[in-house]
Every structure is written in structure tokens, then in C-alpha cells.
Amino acid sequence: MRFFSDVQLTYARACRAVLREPSWIIIGLAQPLFYLYLFGPMLDNSGVTRGWPAGTSSWDVFIPGLLVQLVLFNCAFNGFALLSEMRQGVLERLSVTPISRLALLLGRAGRDATLVIIQGGILVGLAIPLGLHIHAGMIIAALVLLALGVGLSCLGYGLALILRSEDALAPVVQGVSLPVLLLSGVLLPLTLAPGWLDDTAEANPLRHTVDAVRALMLGSGSAWLGIVVTLALSVLLVVFGTRRFSNTEDMRIT
């Protein structure tokens, strides 16, 4: 079908751009690696495993959050790359062709999601010797993260199309991602939080994603709420991104 070949074309083009500068894969991994080695060890005796089944290590609680953080930072910040394509007129040129708008978006978002899955795989691999336990639910967790990656990537691109400059995009993305991150229990589980903070975090969809990924990777606890919330969020964000991409008025920055 035309649509899938359009997605594949955009995906391949986006992947070529990464392969030209593969160092970005490592640069995007740098921050989580700092957290892994410079923050993770502190959790060993912190009691984060309280309430989890016996034998659960602090890494089992910490790594799922770190994976969500990886997805958030690498996907929501991708709008900057789109700004350069807008400036060069590439996006406008492709807009005057029969290519599907959704494909223009999903090809890119799919590339971003693929990248974070690769980065996440590296992160998990490095965490196993530290004490992370592997469970089959991790496969489903990867799919949940993939969906989240596609959604957040669409958000990043949609915001780039609206804000149209690095100066406007950076504070918005940074200003939103930090509270979202803290309110999702990425660094420490929200079970440690006082009641009011825990309640506030309930409204944050990413909190449920983190809970679900944690439950899936541990093979313990219910993940359904988190899976449904994540998928619904991703669908919403894809719709948002597609609407921005369908508006061809502002595809170029001059």
C-alpha cells in the first residue's frame, strides 16, 4: 500500500541522517548513563524495594524509570532536528508531493522510537551486571516504550511546527519535561511520596507508564492501566502531530 511505502521512505531517510552522525546515539545515552553509574548505586540501601516481592533489587525499580526518562528526553527533544529541515525547505518540498502527511510524521517518529529502543537495550545490558533481573515481560515493556516514543516524538515535531525556533522550543520542552519526569516517579518510586504528591502524580500519564514498565519488567503487579494510558496518550499525540503536519502553510522557516 502507498501509505506504508511512504512511511518506509521517510523512515529510511531519517535513519540515513542518523547513520551519517552515529555519535548522536551515544550522546543521547550519556545522560541516562550518568544516572545509571552516578545515581543508581545510592539506591542500594534506600528502601525503594519496600513493598516489592523479596529478591527485588533496587535496580529493578530504578531501571524502568530510567528507560522512560530516556524515551522522554530523546523523543520530545527531536523537534530541533525538524527545525533544520524546515529551514532548508525540505519539509515544504515534500509537502507539495502526494506523500501522506501521516507518513511524513510516522516515518520520523518511528526512527526516533527505534533509536531509543536500541539505546534502552544498551542501558539494560549495562544494568544486568549491576543487579537488574530480567523477566519476559520486558518484551511487552519494550513495546509500551516504543508506543510512548512514537507519541512523544510526534509531540516534539508538532511543537517544532508551532513554535518555529530553537529559542521558543527549548524552554517549552525543558519546562514541561522536568516536572513531568519528577511526577512520574522516574528517579524514586512515588510509593515513597507523601499523599498529596502521589495524588498529583496520578494525573500524569507518564507516571502510569513508569508503573506499567516496572510491573512488566518485574513480572509482578498489574500493568494494564499503564498500558492503556500510554497507548491512549500516544494516539492523542500522533493525532496532534498529524494535524500540525497537514497544515502546509508553515512548513518553511525563512
Partner: peptide, 27 residues
């Protein structure tokens, strides 16, 4: 066919890649 004032090619790509992309986009 539309050629915008500032063009529409990616400076990191090659001419052949851009032309092939355009052809593929048109089916």
C-alpha cells in the same frame, strides 16, 4: 513541480539521493 525560492534540499544529502527520494515519493 514546485521549486521554492530557497530550494528544498538537505545539505547533508547527495543529489542522487534527493532525486531518488523525490521519484519514490511520486510512486
Amino acid at each position: 513541480g514546485f521549486v521554492a525560492q530557497g530550494g528544498g534540499t538537505d545539505s547533508a544529502e547527495t543529489a542522487r539521493a534527493e532525486l531518488v527520494m523525490q521519484g519514490r515519493v511520486f510512486g
